[in-house]
């Protein structure tokens, strides 16, 4: 719930025109700068959780290795690839709106949202698989104790970000459908783009730290 409000706020403020009109250029500058600041604070939250995992990894390398041996890295690799592709789709969409092609934006963003949704779905499959071999959120007295919570917390937190990102993407698509964006006014798309890149980059870090190292 708390994450929701974090997400919604910058998006909603897109609409907060409320009469104090500045020139649109300044407004879009403000929005982008605010988004950077917001992402900076998100980085810190993820850093906390990844830090917790790294400390655990450092003290209990054998547990992590055992989990790695039991799990199928292929699925996650595929998932990572899907998320990267969705980022590429987002960039293509942004390029379309810069050329004033709203339909193109909607099409590319549609692809992006589908890929994001599939990512979440596959993440769920991955969780099922882990639960099957006994990795649980809380300790169950098995060989994977201590790994579960430190793994699920950051990945689930990231998953929530993907879900919010997909919803936000749909919101942007709807705005585009209503004709709210043009080649001279696409700050809302750009801001979303920053967010989606961020979600992507965080996943690459998570993937590296949690699955590869």
């Amino acid at each position: 719930m708390s994450e929701m409000s974090l997400e919604k706020a910058p998006a909603a403020s897109v609409e907060a025109a409320h009469g104090h009109e500045h020139n649109p250029g300044a407004r879009s500058e403000n929005l982008k700068f605010a988004t950077w600041l917001y992402l900076a604070s998100e980085v810190v939250i993820f850093a906390t959780m990844i830090g917790v995992f790294i400390v655990f990894r450092f003290h209990n390398p054998e547990i992590v290795q055992r989990v790695h041996k039991e799990t199928n890295i292929l699925l996650v690799t595929l998932n990572t690839f899907l998320l990267l592709t969705s980022s590429w789709a987002m960039v293509m969409g942004l390029r379309e709106i810069q050329r004033d092609n709203r339909q193109g934006l909607i099409r590319w963003f549609g692809l992006m949202c589908i890929l994001g949704t599939v990512f979440v779905g596959l993440q769920y499959v991955e969780y099922q698989e882990l639960a099957h071999i006994g990795v649980a959120l809380f300790n169950q007295g098995n060989e994977f104790d201590g790994f579960g919570m430190r793994f699920y917390a950051p990945t689930a937190f990231h998953g929530v970000h993907v879900i919010i990102g997909v919803l936000w993407g749909l919101f942007v698509m709807n705005n585009a459908r209503k004709g709210n964006y043009s080649s001279s006014n696409y700050a809302g798309v750009e801001v979303f783009g920053l967010y989606w890149h961020f979600v992507d980059v965080v996943w690459i870090i998570l993937f590296t730290m949690l699955y590869l190292v």
Partner: peptide, 9 residues
């Protein structure tokens, strides 16, 4: 955000 992360845990 550090507090937010910690409080979440």
């Amino acid at each position: 955000p550090f507090l937010a992360g910690g409080l979440t845990l």
